[in-house]
Simulated assay, not measured.
Amino acid sequence: MSDNELRRIKVLLIDDEPFIRLTIRQILMQIGIPPSNLYDAGDATAGLAETLRVRPSVVLCDIHMPGDDGLSYVAKVRSAPIPDVAATPVVMLTSDSGEEAVMAAKGHKVAGYLVKPVSIAAVKKSIERALKVTLP
């Protein structure tokens, strides 16, 4: 993947913790994704609105949030009437490594599952897998 292609990747981060959003934003910038291509939302409802507005290349989404959780968000994305939106790759980003949560996420056809805290390498690899690309 060229630098030009990397600059076109848009990432939406959905997490109710501002510190987590800031930390992941910094990791994404270290990977090479421009700050102008990073979007975030503090809950699933705002995340869905941003997904429809931004049409991200990939979404990193927490599972456990107040109100609708991350799995509810994924279910709504998958049932969207717009094919590009319904096919949006979603990587779950959570501190829940329990089998029940992992299996529930797989049932929603997520593109990956990252357990917090995450490393730069793990985030990069999950984005590469979700988008089927190799990042520089």
Rank of each mutant, 00 (worst) to 15 (best):
T88I: 13
L131S: 15
M65V: 05
G98A: 13
D16T: 02
V59C: 11
A122Y: 08
L114W: 02
A105N: 13
D16K: 00
K106A: 12
V118M: 11
V58W: 13
I31V: 11
P18W: 02
E5D: 11
V90W: 14
P83K: 06
V85I: 14
S57R: 05
V54S: 10
Y73V: 05
P136S: 03
M92Y: 02
Q30S: 00
D3A: 09
L48S: 11
V11W: 08
T51N: 13
V115Y: 09
C61N: 10
S97R: 12
L135G: 08
I27M: 06
T51K: 12
M103G: 00
N4V: 09
I20T: 06
S57V: 09
D69E: 06
A121Q: 13
E50R: 15
D15C: 09
G98S: 14
D16F: 01
I24D: 05
T94R: 08
P89C: 10
N37Y: 13
Q26P: 00
D43G: 06
G98W: 10
N37C: 10
L60W: 07
N4P: 00
P34K: 12
V58Q: 07
R25Y: 09
V91D: 04
Y113M: 03
V91Y: 05
D84G: 14
L48W: 13
V110E: 11
K76T: 14
R25P: 01
V110R: 15
K124F: 07
E100G: 09
G32T: 08
A41C: 03
V91K: 02
D68I: 04
S119Q: 10
P34G: 10
A104G: 04
V115E: 08
G32E: 10
A122F: 03
L60A: 10
I33T: 06
P136W: 11
K116W: 00
H64R: 14
S119K: 04
S72K: 09
V85W: 08
P18Q: 01
A44R: 02
G67F: 06
M103H: 01
L13H: 15
P83V: 05
D15Y: 02
K76A: 14
V58I: 06
E17Q: 04
M103T: 09
R78Y: 13
V11L: 12
R8G: 06
Y73K: 07
S36Y: 08
D16W: 01
Y39F: 15
R53T: 13
L52R: 14
P35T: 05
L28H: 00
R129G: 08
P83R: 12
T94I: 03
V77L: 14
D43V: 00
L131P: 06
I14P: 03
I31S: 07
K132R: 15
H64T: 02
R8A: 04
S119F: 12
D62G: 05
A41T: 01
I9C: 01
L60K: 06
A87I: 03
R55L: 15
P66M: 02
D3T: 08
S2K: 07
T88Q: 11
Q26K: 05
V91P: 03
P56V: 10
H64F: 03
T45C: 12
M29K: 01
E128Y: 05
L114G: 03
P89F: 12
E99V: 12
A121V: 13
E50D: 12
M92K: 02
S72Q: 10
L114M: 00
A105Y: 15
E50Y: 14
K106P: 00
I20R: 00
E128C: 05
S126G: 07
I82G: 07
P81T: 10
K124G: 07
A122I: 03
L71S: 04
E50L: 13
